[in-house]
Design a protein around this nucleic acid. Sequence first.
DNA 1: CGGCACAAGGTTAGCGCTAACAAGGAAGGC
DNA 2: GCCTTCCTTGTTAGCGCTAACCTTGTGCCG
Lengths: 346, 346
Amino acid sequence: MASKPNGVPALRMEDVARLAGVSVMTVSRALRTPPAVAASTLAKVRAALEETGYLPNLVASGLASSRTQVVAAVIPLISQPFAPTLQSMSDVLRRASYQLVLGVSHYDPLQEEALVRAFLSRRVDGIALFAGGHTPQTIAMLEQAGVPLVEMWADSATEFIVDAVSVPQRRGAQDVVRHLLARGRQRIGFIGGSTRHNIRAQARLGGYLDGLAEAGLPHDPAACEEATHFLMEGGAAALARLLERRPQLDAICVASDILAAGVVFEAHRRGLSVPRDLAVAGFDDAEIARSMYPALTTIDMRAEDMGRRAAEMLLERTSQSSRVDLVAMPSRMHDLGYTLIVREST
Amino acid sequence: MASKPNGVPALRMEDVARLAGVSVMTVSRALRTPPAVAASTLAKVRAALEETGYLPNLVASGLASSRTQVVAAVIPLISQPFAPTLQSMSDVLRRASYQLVLGVSHYDPLQEEALVRAFLSRRVDGIALFAGGHTPQTIAMLEQAGVPLVEMWADSATEFIVDAVSVPQRRGAQDVVRHLLARGRQRIGFIGGSTRHNIRAQARLGGYLDGLAEAGLPHDPAACEEATHFLMEGGAAALARLLERRPQLDAICVASDILAAGVVFEAHRRGLSVPRDLAVAGFDDAEIARSMYPALTTIDMRAEDMGRRAAEMLLERTSQSSRVDLVAMPSRMHDLGYTLIVREST
DNA sequence: CGGCACAAGGTTAGCGCTAACAAGGAAGGC
DNA sequence: GCCTTCCTTGTTAGCGCTAACCTTGTGCCG
């Protein structure tokens, strides 16, 4: 146990301490709070650390201090627009010597529950969740654990006490519709993801309907389609179904850039020109939106800022997690805003 | 400490044991090795677990058993084609009740080293690395720790003792060139990633050169270009530079589907038709390859199989990690093969 | 020059679990 | 009927680290 496969036990702090001629506690302090150790001692310890190649056992450290220095994020998919969010979260956390661990829920509340259970069992110091679709058990576990928590991509305040960082997606979708109308489009369709368990999809559909209502246009359910999955193929298939029912559409508001790219590809495949025959607008400002031809009109959802702010909010809570005043700290809702980016596709 | 922010201490096994009227050890056994506990006792313990909502402390468990049930993977980027590999790895590991944690190195050996150090400090039970570009310190740490290790996407045997799972990428790239030649293309260019620290990029460039050599064609360095980063924009910019020097090219062999998509977009932007004016072939069979229009000819690198096999190899090692015979187990090289997928772009 | 503050390091006692062994009891063989 | 064997549960002793407290030594003040 605690040994390398060939039977040699792993180095412990005691080995370093003996070599440096100090106590174990001094080595611990040299690693965690260097200023608390005299310069000459620090030098001896560092030499011993160097010589042995000692790697601290963070499992033991975590048990003794009841802080694991790990923060978990549960995302629906490993893809745009979540990847940039994670990247910036990870950067902020690393700078504070926390590590980010990841779980993928595939938009399934039960998988999210299993992930949250696993993370809580590992006693992570904080959890970032994507808004919407939590099971009652998930919420109960989180409340009982009392772990710092932040929700991302919420469109409005959530059910339980938690910090949130978000953008007003619904208004964003409405702005897309306004833009398409301003471009002279009249027959605007919508392609979104499943609204089941997906609060983001719900908000975007809502904004589309708001936009139509504002212009006094009727809501035609047959001009709306749900993609079966968040891949380009899903967008392409959705457009095919949509055009079968409503071939005269001149614009499509799509709830994600990935789907929108699929929509553009399918339009080209059918010999339609984008934007001449069909204007297409996406959502998220994913990488493909600016790279593809024609480049996609989209909404920048501040994915990176979202990750950065989420991490900062978690750190603010963990830093006082040992104090009773964490509960006293009110839940916060941080709104990041958004930007409509007009490109070639409209 | 070990308490919720409001001061209530977290549940321990002892609390469950008291409620069930058994010893702590029996609760532990009920959780880890249910068959070792009598059915009637198991029922009592499970009732108590249910009633309390107890979540085992895997930090303490990890310290006591010196097995964390965590496996780490270090990838160069969160993107295709790594995402499917991770997904299948994660699935296999979860089934064996291991958890996968992720690190992103950005093709930087120093970042990889830092990640490996962090993972070893957390005493992960296994590590999966992407082949190539390890610092000597990284290798030294891994050897000293003696943790089960697997390399993915290696093209050939590696420097140190380790399992590997790979595909013959070099031959794959050669096959792409053969295919382009068979389609009547004569002036074939190459766009790859930086070969610095990127063993995959090196292998693919090598295969391209092999293909030219085999056909008796000269190697024109000016027909080769390096993308500055693995994004579509990188591919687009690389094509622009390439065509400036060699406008007469009629085919491009691209080292990744993401780059290849950028190449196609740039070609369209310049009014070139793909494949009529320019044939484009990618690598990896990423999602965009089959979704985009025109769909990309590419090489299926068995990304999912790679993750699955890597996870299986790690599990085979961890299961005997407590025994001395792990070292006795020889290093293995598992070759998965590849498939050329011909689509519209050539 | 005694007393006191503070800096620097050591000592003690766990963190919450599990490995390893011990013990008790039921079942089975002779 | 007694001894062996196995099945089930309990007891003991840590895993490697850190929080909290305690000790020592140094400098500074009146």
